[in-house]
Design a protein around this nucleic acid. Structure first.
Lengths: 244, 244
DNA sequence: CAGTGGTCTAGACCACTTA
DNA sequence: AAGTGGTCTAGACCACTGT
C-alpha cells in the first residue's frame, strides 16, 4: 500500500485508500468470483496498516455485497449465483407477501446494431457504437409474465451473440465470462397499455395494463453494464420493493 | 447499562445491547426528534462500556438514518422534515433522471371505521379495531397525479380526525405528534386500469393505465405504522428506485 | 488444535464546529 | 481553546470452522 502521504487538501482516510485498492483487485480480476481473500492479518501486513483499518475497508465491501465474510472460514468474493443476489435484481413475486418465483426464458433473439443517440448517452459509449439487443420472454411457473429487452454495449461483451443460448441469469454471465460486476441499478417504473408485441408475447388482450420497468444497471468500475426494459403482466405477480 | 452478564445460550454482543438501549430511548421519547444526544464519552461513562462500543452502536443507528452525526457538532435525532427523508418515501419524479417534485394535497377526507379482516391482520391489530381512513388527491406542479388512501390504526393516532387539515407530510405528523417513527416500508407495485374514482380525481379517460403502489409502513417499535395505497398517473412522472 | 473473523478496550491523534 | 465526532493503532479475548 506504500502509505501515501496525505496532502492536506485532498485528504483520504487510510481505510478509504485500502478500500480503493481492494476494488482495484476485484475489477482487475486479481481476486475472482468465489475465491477466498488473504486473511485480515496477512492483508494488514502486506499493506502496512493495522488489522482494524483493513477490517473497516472489508466491512464496507461486505455491506455493499461485494464480499461475503464468514466467521471461522474467511472472506470470499461474492458470486451472483446466490439467491439473495439474484433476487436483488429480479423482484417479481406472487402477490400479497408471497414468495419469489424462479424465472425461465423463451423466444430469445439477439441482434447487433448501432446504439441510438439516447442509448449511447445513457451507456456512456460513443455515438452509434455497437450494442447487442436481446429480446426474450420470461416465464414464472411456466406462464409468460415479462417481455424483456436488454441493450448491452458490445465493447464490454465481445462475442455475446455467438454464445448460443444465453443463460437465465445474464448478470452471472457478465461476471464470470466478462469480469463485469453488476453492483446496483437505477429503475424507473410506470404504467402503460400493452403494445401489440406485449400482447403477442404475454397473451394479453387489447387495452390490458402493463408495468414497465426501465433499468440502468451499474458496474463496479463506475460505468454502465446495460439498459433493460421489462414489460410485466402484474395480474398474478407484483413488483416488490423494501425501503430501509 | 449495568453490564448484563451474557448467558452462553442467548449471547448478544455488547454493542447490540447498547443499540437496544438507544432504540428504547428513542421509542420512549427520552431522546426527541431534533435533539442532541450526550457525547460518545458521556454515553460510554454512563453505560460503563468503552467509547468504541458506543460508537459502533451509534454508527448502526446513523446508517439506519435514525441519527445524524456531524463531526465537531454532535449526534442528533433525525427529523423526517429533511429532504432526503421525505423523498425516501415519496419517490415520484419527472421522468428520465429528472428531479423530484414537491407534492401538495387536495380533496382530503378522513373517516373512522372498523378495520377489515385483511387490514387488521396486516396492521397487527384486533379484528374490527378502529382505523382512520384518509383519502386525498396529491398534486405535483399543481396537476393531480396520485389518488392516495391511507389506513392508520386509531390506537396509535388518537384524535387524528379532529386535527383539522392534515399536513402534507403525514410521517412528520406521526413523529412529532404521536412519537411514531416510520423507519421503512414494504411496497408492492402493479399496473391497473383507472377506476371511476381514479378518473374523477386525476382527470383520466376510461381505459387509462394506472400504477398502483401498496405500501406497509414500518415503525421503529417493530409494529406497522399504516397502510397506504397510491394510484398514480405516470404519464409525466415515474416511480424511481435505486437498488444498491 | 490452529486459523479465521467478531468483539471490546484504551489511548493517541486528526478534522471540524462553536464560542 | 475546548469539545465533538473521525481515524488509526495495538493488543486481548471470544466464537466459529476446518483438520
Amino acid at each position: 500500500m506504500e502509505r501515501v502521504i496525505d496532502e492536506r487538501p485532498g485528504f483520504l482516510p487510510l481505510y478509504r485508500q485500502v478500500y480503493d485498492f481492494m476494488v482495484k483487485q476485484l475489477t482487475n480480476g486479481v481476486w475472482k468470483a468465489g475465491e477466498a481473500l488473504p486473511s485480515e492479518q496477512v492483508l494488514a501486513a502486506q499493506l502496512g496498516v493495522s488489522q482494524g483499518t483493513v477490517r473497516k475497508a472489508l466491512d464496507v465491501l461486505a455491506q455493499e455485497q461485494l464480499l461475503d465474510r464468514h466467521q471461522g472460514r474467511g472472506t470470499f468474493v461474492s458470486t451472483l449465483t446466490q439467491e439473495r443476489s439474484l433476487f436483488r435484481f429480479f423482484r417479481l413475486r406472487r402477490e400479497a407477501g408471497g414468495d419469489f418465483g424462479i424465472p425461465t426464458s423463451e423466444d430469445e433473439k439477439i441482434t447487433r446494431r448501432p446504439a441510438t443517440e439516447r442509448e449511447a448517452e445513457v451507456l456512456q459509449i460513443a455515438r452509434r457504437a455497437p450494442v447487442y439487443e436481446i429480446k426474450r420472454t420470461r416465464l414464472l411457473d411456466g406462464a409468460p409474465i415479462v417481455f424483456e429487452t436488454v441493450i448491452a454495449p458490445a465493447s464490454r461483451y465481445p462475442g455475446l451473440d455467438r454464445l448460443g443460448r444465453l443463460p437465465n441469469a445474464l448478470y452471472q454471465l457478465y461476471q464470470h465470462q466478462y469480469g463485469v460486476n453488476v453492483v446496483g441499478a437505477d429503475e424507473e417504473l410506470r404504467a402503460d397499455l400493452a403494445s401489440p408485441e406485449d400482447r403477442q408475447r404475454l397473451g394479453l388482450e387489447e387495452g390490458a395494463p402493463i408495468l414497465q420497468i426501465r433499468r440502468i444497471a451499474l458496474a463496479l468500475d463506475g460505468g454502465r453494464a446495460e439498459i433493460r426494459i421489462s414489460r410485466c403482466d402484474t395480474r398474478r405477480f407484483v413488483y416488490a420493493v423494501s425501503i430501509r
